[in-house]
Design a protein around this nucleic acid. Structure first.
Lengths: 190, 190
DNA sequence: TCATAATGGGACACCAGTGTCTCATAAAAG
DNA sequence: CTTTTATGAGACACTGGTGTCCCATTATGA
């Protein structure tokens, strides 16, 4: 089983990934959910889970890291810096919706302390987004009065809301991006 | 101590209220917080807390009920049915901001099951708001394409976001209503 | 002042979730 | 086929939070 001590065996990488995905899905919905639920979702024994992630904190940190990685991947593809800001914004929203579970897990908890714990690997997410907003303001397509940080918060809030609607079966996933973008571009006014 | 068995002693009503307010504040921030924290915040012994609310579920239900009551009170004052829809919307947002802790507690938890438990006393909140949105659509001031339920979700999401900014000290409370209303009325576009 | 009501501080048993460990079995690699 | 490797199931001790109880102390009302 070509074990080079690193989790590159293929088998190991696969179960590890399954656990992380399960953790994101379960813990995004309920941050206090017992690990047995995560294991169950991942179709893995609780022992195996602890074998990969010694304790809850380690699992949380790893899931967080994975989330940032996943989000970073789709954000790269979204090319936030290229083209008209309005269109870039649409691509960015679509990217977040695409990896909804990870997004909700990573940023969805208001009492999220993991964020503070992450010392070095400060996620470049906010930077990219505030830059995009500023660019949009310079292009004259975004409200020049609004604080970029506030706009980013609004962006996240709308994405979360859309994803939550999906989770509750009140909206198809493909409807989220258009709905969010429409609100962003013109609010709910006529 | 004029105890008519009902919690009308004055003293009883006051401590009861203090516990409920503490519960809203603490549990809004962290739904899984230990009851000892709630007691501490209420400046009350843990024994006393259990004396008023036998177990966690009872406390949760009572806090939820109180929240609905508080929100209902300020919503009545906001007179959502009167005047131009656009102005009514502003009053409604301001009302929610005013009782921020209660709002966040009652509707802020995505994994909120208390909602399902409440059988009879279905809160009239959504009704009032969706009615307001519909009225605005008829008046021609709200996006006629948008699903009223979605608009209400957006409304809540923006209010939560604003309140969270306040909680983190990134925005003064009085700035929330204008910021939220502005986004609602014209999005983040120029 | 006195009787009663309300409270706080512990002590206590209890339980769900956690983390560790062992062992038997299944799966992959050689 | 044989040898590792990965896994699942269960037993176990431990912990933090819960809910109950009792008793001493304080506040309140008559």
């Amino acid at each position: 089983m070509t074990s080079t001590e690193n989790p590159r065996t293929g088998v190991r990488a696969r179960t590890r990934g399954a656990i992380l995905r399960a953790a994101a899905a379960v813990l995004a919905h309920d941050r206090a959910a017992p690990l047995s639920e995560v294991a169950e979702r991942a179709r893995v024994g609780r022992s195996t889970l602890h074998r990969y992630f010694p304790d809850r904190d380690v699992l949380l940190a790893a899931t967080y890291e994975e989330a940032l990685s996943e989000i970073g991947r789709v954000m790269d593809e979204a090319r936030a810096q290229e083209g008209p800001a309005a269109q870039a914004l649409r691509r960015v929203v679509a990217a977040h919706v695409e990896v909804g579970d990870w997004v909700v897990f990573a940023f969805g908890d208001t009492a999220n302390e993991v964020f503070d714990d992450a010392p070095d690997a400060a996620d470049p997410e906010p930077e990219i987004l505030t830059d995009l907003v500023r660019r949009g303001q310079e292009e004259g397509v975004f409200d020049p009065e609004a604080d970029p940080a506030w706009v980013v918060q609004v962006l996240w809030a709308l994405i979360f809301t859309g994803l939550e609607q999906v989770g509750r079966g009140r909206m198809p996933r493909h409807a989220v991006t258009p709905a969010v973008v429409r609100v962003l571009e013109r609010g709910v006014g006529a």
